[in-house]
Amino acid sequence: MAKKKKGFSVFINGIINENPTFRMLLGMCPSLAVTTMAKNGLGMGAAATFVLVGSNFIISLIRNIVPDKVRIPAYITVIATFTTIVQMLLAVLLPELNKQLGIYIPLIVVNCIIFARAEMFAQKNGPILSILDALGMGAGFTIAITIIGSVREILGSGTWMGYPVTVNLFSPATFFILPAGGFMIMGFLVALFNKLANRKKNDNTIEHQDACAVGCPGCSNAAGGGDVK
């Protein structure tokens, strides 16, 4: 029973307390770049979640075999493999979405969230907890970028998931689907999310202390942080 409870809190941790996008501000590049439409946000989130679950699972299995020295190349290889698989699968199953997301699918390899979870969680925990952690983080990321995508699509294009919703209400402002609008919406949503999440006052997150143990230089996205094309 106790174990079940821990698993659940690990899962929910990624959605609320350590939401990668709204709380940790990780993976900003895809969060801003692909979120011009809600559908793209959802697709990107799902693809990243698949990679996250796969890499967290494998890394937690090999964590005791891989010597510390080569752990980073080993993890990157695992992550790159899953990213390539996801790209092939997308090309087969959802070619339309694959075209929309374009370069951002291969860029999942250097997604900060995935590497951070490998270093901070999968490396120290067993496979089942690691999968739960990946699912929670993936869900948190997906929910977050789908919300950003929804707000930007509704305000910027007047549609949601491709369907017109604001025809008689207001005329959409293209500003919101451009990068500047993306940053603005992001800022407001982070503020709103933090306000709501802090109200609960349960700040006893599992890895509150070593959340940034890797630090900025250890983060694979450090050089490209905020680099939105």
């Binding site: 090999i62 075999i65 891989v66 010597p67 080569v70 080993a74 290889t77 493999t81 390539t84 698989i85």
Partner: peptide
Amino acid sequence: KPALILFLICIVLTAAL
């Protein structure tokens, strides 16, 4: 040892790909 292990990991993953 580290080199061998990394090599093995790469082989397994490449086969999967």
